[in-house]
Amino acid sequence: MTWVHDLAILTRGAGITAIIAVISTLLGAAIAFIVGVARVEGGPVVARIALFYIEFMRGTPLLVKLFWLYYALPLIGVSLDPFTTGIVGLSLNIGAYGAEVVRGGLQSVPDVQIEAARALNFSRRYTLLHITLPQTVIEMMPAFGNLAVQNLKDTALVSLISIADLTFRAQQLRNITLDSARIYTLTLLGYFVMALVLSAVMRFLEHKARRGAAFPRGMQQ
């Protein structure tokens, strides 16, 4: 009876964890592409701002950022609810790591490809969207998969700003039941299963993208 009851509560928390993970991963991916492209293609000013963003976000602990958004930001007049705070903090954080993946991918496209595009008089924007990004986006996917799992694990920290995710529910249950071993084992398994599912989804997407792209890889010239 207690097992069923505990599982029901933990599952509710896991649902919140999943929602937060999905939203922040998608937002993080959007940030990653915008900032990563800005880093490579932006003018001196824009590229430097992107660099600063990446370095600052990657240089500060996620928990510090979350606490800052949650406790400090209201003191300068911006109050976000916990859920929004969590999403914003996670997205800004993982987006910076993703931006490095995008930068690395774009810079891995051989210069001669960009020269060929210029010789055909493509605009910079067209070159980015149709020549360089398509050649590299599939190669970025394994790294994005790792970041998605990283982000899923990072969501556990939002329990500390009072979001009722899986970790939060686990803490609640432990305080009631005092059966730490059982509760935390279940919780660990919950995250593990979610991570496996997430990895599988990312691998499936990569597989589909490779099939859809239809061009054999790694064989340029």
């Binding site: 060929a116 055909l120 050649q135």
Partner: peptide, 26 residues
């Protein structure tokens, strides 16, 4: 127009698309 030593075709596009891409886009 330019023809390069290392050809520099776009690896993710078919032969036909390599040729029509620029006339259509540019």
């Amino acid at each position: 127009g330019m023809v390069f030593q290392s050809f520099n075709l776009f690896p993710h596009m078919s032969v036909l698309r390599n040729i029509v891409e620029a006339p259509i886009a540019v």
